[in-house]
Design a protein around this nucleic acid. Sequence first.
DNA 1: TCAAATGTTCGATGATAATCGAAATATAAA
DNA 2: TTTATATTTCGATTATCATCGAACATTTGA
Lengths: 116, 116
Amino acid sequence: MKILFHPDRKDIQLASVLYALSDPIRLSIISDIQHNGEQACNGFNVPVAKSTLSHHARTLREAGVIHTRVQGTQRMLSLRTEDLNARFPGLLDSVLRAYEAAEQPVPVMKAEESSN
Amino acid sequence: MKILFHPDRKDIQLASVLYALSDPIRLSIISDIQHNGEQACNGFNVPVAKSTLSHHARTLREAGVIHTRVQGTQRMLSLRTEDLNARFPGLLDSVLRAYEAAEQPVPVMKAEESSN
DNA sequence: TCAAATGTTCGATGATAATCGAAATATAAA
DNA sequence: TTTATATTTCGATTATCATCGAACATTTGA
């Protein structure tokens, strides 16, 4: 089983985190995790192919925004809240709050359209 | 004289702002402005060609992060602090603080190397 | 052992971005 | 009016990214 790379707290880079958070799909993923706790990939309601979702999850993980835990066939994603707060105080909160406050919080998708 | 596009406060998008801030050069620009106030482009000590700096300034302006005021042959850049605070409370501060706290605040460049 | 469920990796594609130097533009200054 | 200053635009190059479907891998469950 592959070992998943997660940067150490001290190696988390501001620019990389901001980049990881600069995509609407990825913002919706972290917002979902914050609201509903640790989530498997198949729990996210995002309008992209699963390979694309996998790519976004990797981007967030390698930037240090999320942690991925393997559980059976699933990958459980959680926010690295403590690490991010320690490294960049207030950043994650302000981003999540800004995202919630925005007009269209989640890239919505009708259930019927969802097919992967 | 060209009119420079600046998005209205309400049209400033979170993802676009995060993207604009996800580049080390652009981070150093906004940090410089915060410390030293309104700056002309030629005041920034960044290791890129002037055409590239112009590109970064445009990216920041079009995302709504900075305001560009024409003064003679210069473009005076300032932070849209009020607009950003109103729209995304705490975001700009946390980013600037995180940038200051980071090990290598500014993409440094010895004076002798600077040549455009 | 076989099949289903869940993700990842691969290869391709189209889009966007960072970068440069050269040329163009606009203003100020001589 | 000519020249210098400050910056933008242009065209080209190279790199990265978001996306997809297909193939692959891993683990669980029948």
